[in-house]
Design a protein around this nucleic acid. Structure first.
Lengths: 348, 348
DNA sequence: TTGGGACACTCAAGCGCTTTAGCGATCGCC
DNA sequence: GGCGATCGCTAAAGCGCTTGAGTGTCCCAA
């Protein structure tokens, strides 16, 4: 009978203390860079710890009031919506980069809706699981800021507009309004007068910002054939809306899609209807990813650095954890990368 | 001066004990469904706990030897590779579904390479952070199983082939070999004799399985114009390889791509070279996602239920955590969904 | 009537770490 | 040379929970 594998035991501070010939407290002081031990002892303790491969137990740390060294990230999207999303993974990898440096863990959860998301925050808080959270997809009517405020859970909202009512939350956002204005400006310059914006989820704050800006820009120029249509971001709805608006008596000559997936589906739908891109209709994707260069014509798109977005958000959160003040930081305005899907409007 | 917000305090078992007029241990017994308290006391304690909104502190639990109620997931991929991957998010959402039921957290980390991944496992283990891990992208020469064995960390390998050398690991896998055989069978039936397989990363176990099977199937049929080319899964390499093989003197009449992104890029590249799909060349994508129906022609693809894959893996892991035996489970063979990108080979 | 369980519960130790209080020894200072 | 301050360290409590070892009560069999 084979001897039961002796599972490697994790060394504790007690082991270090014994080996170094000091008390546990001395070890704690030494390892945490606190005063109370001499330099030579500190060095010795450090060496022993290193040698033993010691790592602090997060559980013990958390229990003695040090925090869980973990930050939380909840994604409230129905599972099937998660298909192809370049933004998200990029964002997460950016977040990770920053968190990893500080040895902070990322607790990740996917839930169905905002109510579930709130429940998760409550649970995490009660379970002592996270020190702070990153909030995505801020809504127009959003219960989360108030909740996080109540729980006193440090948080940064990704993609939200600044919100005075919750001074404890940091916000990292891109200037959608500015980007939308510049896109309209450009399309207008190309001669486009009828523009349809195939937007994302109606409840999202940035969707509303884009819609409002589009309307304002249209009014400013006296355009009447401009509208926004909200969708669920799926290729199916993107295609459906495209077909609908292009079949109307006075179809738009330019389409702005709130993500790359819909833009792609939209181009396919337009082509099927006999519209040529960009000769008959110009297309702009509000998300630049590999997808945009995977179809002909290449899609003109608003590009932003999603990973950097994530890094910025994570940095703000760590600043908050370090006791810094809540801030609102704006990442660079997404820029329009013009490729092949945009061109001059066909003269009426 | 506004009163400092009194941060809500989390109730502890002591609070419950006081309110219910029993000892802490009684509370523990009651709440954990252990014998030692009467039904009426148990019920009373439960009510008080509920009322107070109590949740066990994972930190305390973990410290008293109960495990961290968390499972780990490391993704070893260079950040820029993470662009568009439908499989991954689906997989994760499937995993979540199962873990959420059991209130298990998912600690997620993105790293650069396998060495880093191993370091993360060691750290998590030493820090008491996770009870088990899910391993993806198994390699042919993979240091991870041995490490996890050494650390005695329950783990399930996703997408690996069964491995007798590590009887403590569970494995969840799809039968790539069978799927590849069926694809070759079908293409052969359509008259294709020269087939190129644009594979993924050479180091991945399933890449090798597919390559081996393709070679075997070709030999069995006496085909000589069959080869596999490994890539990094990116659209760029997918397109480049496509251009190269289609420019050769005897170009293949069928292309099998190891993911949807490359298939898409491949179709675009082929079209640019003047090849018509499927008239001149058939295309199969080894991944079915919304992408495959977003371009014309619609891509024929191997479909599998990635979310279910994730659920299965998570279930195996929880079984392992519950003390169950390591197992090897096979998810259904991916099936070829024929759409518009495959057709009869043009007669020589 | 009494001894022995079974039951319902309490006590206290312990998980690995932080932190406050305290205790000798050394040091500076007038 | 005596005093308090400082230094380097130890002892011990506490974080919230689990758990094995009691303790007291009640009931039944002998």
């Amino acid at each position: 009978m084979p001897a039961k594998r002796s599972p490697a035991r994790r060394p504790t501070m007690k082991d270090i203390a014994r080996r170094a010939g000091v008390s546990e407290s001395a070890v704690s002081f030494a390892l945490n860079g606190r005063p109370g031990v001499s330099e030579v002892t500190r060095e010795r303790v450090r060496r022993v710890a290193e040698q033993l491969g010691w790592r602090p137990s997060t559980a013990a740390r958390a229990l003695s009031g040090e925090g869980a060294a973990t930050i939380g990230f909840v994604l409230a999207r129905p599972a099937h919506t998660l298909g192809v999303d370049s933004f998200l993974l990029q964002l997460i990898s950016g977040i990770q980069e920053v968190l990893a440096e500080r040895h902070l863990g990322l607790l990740f959860q996917v839930v169905e809706d905002i109510a579930d998301e709130c429940a998760v925050y409550r649970r995490w808080w009660a379970e002592h699981r996270v020190d702070g959270v990153l909030v995505v997809d801020p809504r127009t009517e959003d219960p989360r800021p108030a909740l996080l405020d109540e729980l006193d859970l440090p948080a940064v909202v990704i993609g939200g507009a600044p919100d005075e009512r919750h001074p404890h939350l940091s916000t990292v956002w891109a200037d959608d309004a500015g980007a939308m204005a510049s896109v309209v400006e450009r399309l207008y310059g190309l001669g486009h007068r009828r523009i349809t914006h195939i937007a994302g989820l109606a409840g999202l704050a940035h969707t509303q910002r884009r819609i409002r800006t589009l309307r304002a820009e249209a009014e400013r120029r006296g355009l009447t054939g401009v509208e926004s249509v909200t969708t669920d971001y799926s290729d199916a709805e993107g295609a459906a809306v495209t077909r609908r608006v292009l079949s109307s008596p006075a179809p738009p000559t330019a389409l702005i899609y709130d993500n790359d997936v819909m833009a792609l589906a939209g181009v396919a739908a337009a082509t099927e209807l006999g519209f040529s891109v960009p000769a008959d209709v110009s297309v702009v994707s509000w998300e630049d990813s590999a997808l945009c260069r995977m179809v002909k014509p290449w899609l003109s798109a608003l590009s932003r650095d999603s990973a950097e977005f994530g890094r910025t958000a994570a940095r703000e959160l760590t600043a908050l954890l370090d006791g810094g003040p809540a801030r609102t930081v704006r990442v660079p305005v997404p820029r329009l990368t013009e490729r092949e899907s945009t061109g001059p409007a066909r003269p009426a």
